[in-house]
């Protein structure tokens, strides 16, 4: 039906269009004119080649550096980057420093981590059922975290959110919420512990181990949490095929309690 309508209407439109006034319609872009103050009057530098690109984000992941971690009895080799520093590779405990890690507690308690504790979501599947938010005690749901770990409002709220996200399979969301909690309480080892858990669930065992190590430096005087962290490190090492390191971490977990 519009077959005949189109030419008729267009013709009408043409007639009308002829008469329209060009003014008052939408002005078009005037790219040449600048109205910003900041464009004016300043020296314009020729940017150098972005040589610092790598320094910003593309920092080498690691340099094959070996670090003697004081809390553990063996040094570890980080995944080597493109420039391994062979000179520092040292598979034995650093003898020059003679650092003897002091036991945190007497280790007399009979703690069996492997039986009572299993971090959620190892295979990234949905087999892990999230705790419902109604749990009044807050986040610590993974068995080994004791109720003595007091957390205040914002961190507790965000850990709860993260737990729900993790439970629904949204590991990225959970990690993101945990980093939000980390910004609020950067020295709260429980936040880092949860973050390490999520990293492990995401399949990044190396980062899980590192984040847990960072958490340990903040977990002084909290033996229960230390044990959980060592247990998590043990699992992360197992995932990386480091059975001996895992066994050592388990030993540390037992000593911590």
């Amino acid at each position: 039906m519009s077959k005949w309508l189109i030419p008729v209407l267009t013709s009408g439109a043409l007639l009308a269009g002829c008469a329209t006034n060009p003014h008052g319609s939408i002005p078009v872009v005037e790219s040449g004119s600048s109205i910003t103050e900041e464009q004016e009057g300043g020296p314009v530098y020729q940017a150098q080649a972005p040589a610092a690109g790598p320094a910003v984000q593309a920092l080498p992941e690691d340099s094959g550096v070996v670090v003697m971690v004081p809390q553990q009895s063996s040094s570890r080799i980080y995944p080597a980057g493109e420039t391994p520093l062979s000179g520092t590779v040292d598979a034995q405990p650093a003898t020059s420093s003679g650092i003897v890690p002091g036991p945190v507690t007497d280790g007399s308690s009979s703690y069996a981590p492997s039986s009572s504790y299993s971090p959620p979501g190892h295979d990234g599947s949905s087999s892990y059922t999230p705790p419902v938010a109604s749990a009044p005690s807050g986040i610590p749901q993974s068995g080994s975290l004791a109720a003595d770990e007091q957390l205040d409002g914002p961190v507790l709220a965000l850990l709860t959110t993260a737990q729900q996200q993790q439970g629904s399979g949204d590991l990225n969301g959970a990690a993101s919420s945990l980093e939000r909690a980390q910004r609020i309480a950067p020295r709260e080892p429980q936040v880092l512990y949860r973050l390490a858990e999520v990293r492990l669930a995401q399949g990044d065992a190396a980062q899980a181990e590192q984040v847990a190590q960072r958490a340990l430096t903040y977990a002084g005087g909290r033996p229960t949490l230390q044990a959980s962290l060592w247990e998590l490190i043990a699992q992360a090492r197992e995932r990386q095929g480091n059975a001996a390191g895992a066994a050592q971490a388990r030993e540390r977990a037992r000593v911590s309690l």
Binding site: V67, V69, P70, N172, A175, S176, Q182, Q210, Q213, R214
Partner: peptide, 11 residues
């Protein structure tokens, strides 16, 4: 996401 990453380099 650009996640937080950390690596222990020193005692």
């Amino acid at each position: 996401r650009y996640p937080f990453q950390v690596q222990q380099r020193f005692d």
